[in-house]
Design a protein around this nucleic acid. Structure first.
Lengths: 148, 148
DNA sequence: AACATTAGTTATGCGAATATAATCGTTATA
DNA sequence: TATAACGATTATATTCGCATAACTAATGTT
């Protein structure tokens, strides 16, 4: 039936991680409520932390559509969190950038979202180190694991 | 104050887990698209897998409001995924239950959501065992464990 | 019996997010 | 130069989730 005896362990681990992270879904609400805007807008601000980008790029980052990006940036601009300026290189493009206020809000969001659950803080050092190593491994693109 | 363990490691681990699970946010979309309904409705069906419940209970499970539960159950009923029946004990209450079709859909959703990322499947047995143990530990309710 | 409470429904409206088509100005190309 | 392509905006519509108030039917309480 099962090709691998570890199947059950994999399922346990996965649902466990899923559960841990999504119990943190409340964090999203906390972020949205604390900052007084939808989580999606917060996401836009967070993406802009990496640096200014055009409307087009922002649209791609958020996997939404251009018209909605326009509306959202209108709103964020009105709140004083971003500015729109014409791109010097291509006057069709507009560059969206965080204002200091916008940066502060985005960083506040990062801070809230980065707050780990207590159980993780209480983990003993050896387990933490092991977890750190394993998670890092899970995130690195799979090496083919060729041995010969 | 807690003498912080490896704060950096904690942050790394947490953001790593967050990322792993939420790169799986596509799974939610996959579920919604595959099943042709919003993820929220799927969530309702999944909760009903545990057994029939009243509208009230379902409302609480989904932390939404009664009117919306009515609308959603209307929709799910129309799709043939749930039935509504008057509670024998209290004729005010209505009991929502999955139909066979609804059960099938809910189980399909579970199957998709439970599908772990490839990297997890490729993890070597020792790491998997360690991860299994640690995750289990993270999920057990904190032991009082006097903290200085 | 009179009254309050509870479960669910109906009605209405709002904001968020998505989608499509049309438009305007700019840039690139045949 | 004429035209096609592109970036952004405007306008319009729909779905989803949330919120509130009003209503009904049934149950509980006094």
């Amino acid at each position: 039936m099962t090709d691998s005896p570890d199947q059950a362990a994999v399922a346990r681990v996965w649902s466990g991680m899923y559960d841990l992270v999504l119990r943190q879904e409340d964090r999203r609400k906390e972020v949205a409520e604390t900052l007084g805007m939808s989580f999606f807008r917060v996401k836009a601000l967070r993406r802009l932390l990496a640096g200014p980008m055009t409307m087009r790029e922002l649209t791609a980052e958020l996997s939404t559509d251009k018209p909605y990006t326009t509306l959202m940036v209108d709103d964020l601009e009105q709140r004083g969190y971003v500015t729109r300026s014409v791109s010097p290189g291509d006057r069709r493009s507009k560059i969206v950038a965080l204002t200091p206020a916008g940066t502060a809000v985005a960083e506040e969001a990062e801070r809230i979202l980065a707050r780990p659950p207590r159980s993780l803080l209480a983990l003993d050092p050896a387990d933490l180190a092991a977890l750190d190593r394993i998670i890092a491994r899970l995130r690195t693109p799979e090496e083919p694991a060729s041995r010969s």
